[in-house]
């Protein structure tokens, strides 16, 4: 199993730099869910989340063609930065209202094989927390998604958001408090 920052990933990024389609395909498979989730909570519909996710990977390929991908730098950070910028551009260009994604869409979840009642409970819980997360301001939202949902470390988040680690810790603490207070 591929891991972020591992030697295997570096080899794949090296191959991507050499315009290797297969390496691109592996990196796409590995990061697709994470990037999709990251964008998902920031846009208004599933189709927009899908569209921006595709654009993120296409942008990565363009960067590879332009020789702007560096093997010794975190590929994961680059991906999130590209995704983040695309979301910002998306709001700038269209003046859209943020986070109006419907709950029906928000709970488009890969169904577990668990018992139906149990699955329904989980779905309701997820709807509630998803709704609360969407009420948070963008800064809090992305830090929570990155740390608690996409499992990135404080160091990795600091690298993506280009902030100091201490700053990230404080923001994360505030974001959690805001999430608890959100109704």
């Amino acid at each position: 199993m591929l891991k972020s920052g591992s030697l295997q990933e570096k080899i794949l990024v090296g191959r991507l730099k050499l315009k290797d389609k297969e390496a691109f395909s592996h990196l796409y498979d590995f990061y697709l869910d994470k990037i999709y989730r990251f964008i998902y909570f920031k846009v208004t519909s599933v189709s927009e989340a899908e569209d921006l996710t595709s654009q993120t990977f296409l942008k990565i390929w363009q960067l590879a063609l332009e020789g702007k991908i560096k093997v010794n730098e975190s590929f994961q950070s680059l991906l999130y930065k590209v995704a983040r910028n695309l979301v910002i551009d998306y709001y700038r260009s269209s003046n859209r209202e943020k986070n109006k994604i419907s709950l029906e869409e928000a709970t488009h979840i890969a169904e577990a094989d668990a018992h139906l009642d149990q699955a329904a409970d989980v779905k309701i819980e997820m709807e509630i927390i998803g709704r609360r997360l969407k009420k948070l301001k963008s800064e809090y939202q992305e830090i929570i998604i990155l740390h608690f949902i996409n499992e990135l470390t404080i160091k990795e988040i600091a690298n993506i958001l280009e902030k100091k680690r201490g700053n990230i810790r404080v923001t994360l603490h505030r974001a959690l408090k805001a999430l608890r207070d959100a109704q």
């Binding site: 691109f24 395909s25 796409y28 498979d29 697709l32 869910d33 999709y36 989730r37 998902y40 989340a49 899908e50 996710t53 595709s54 990977f57 296409l58 390929w61 928000a106 488009h108 979840i109 890969a110 577990a112 989980v122 819980e125 997820m126 509630i128 927390i129 998803g130 997360l133 929570i144 608690f148 949902i149 996409n150 499992e151 959690l176 999430l179 608890r180």
Partner: peptide, 25 residues
């Protein structure tokens, strides 16, 4: 609350979209 947040990890794109999009890309 953290456990609830972790449950959001199951949010994934549709399988059909994933495959079709990969092919297109």
């Amino acid at each position: 609350i953290i456990t609830q947040l972790q449950s959001l990890r199951t949010i994934k794109p549709k399988e059909s979209w994933r495959l079709a999009q990969k092919e297109i890309l």
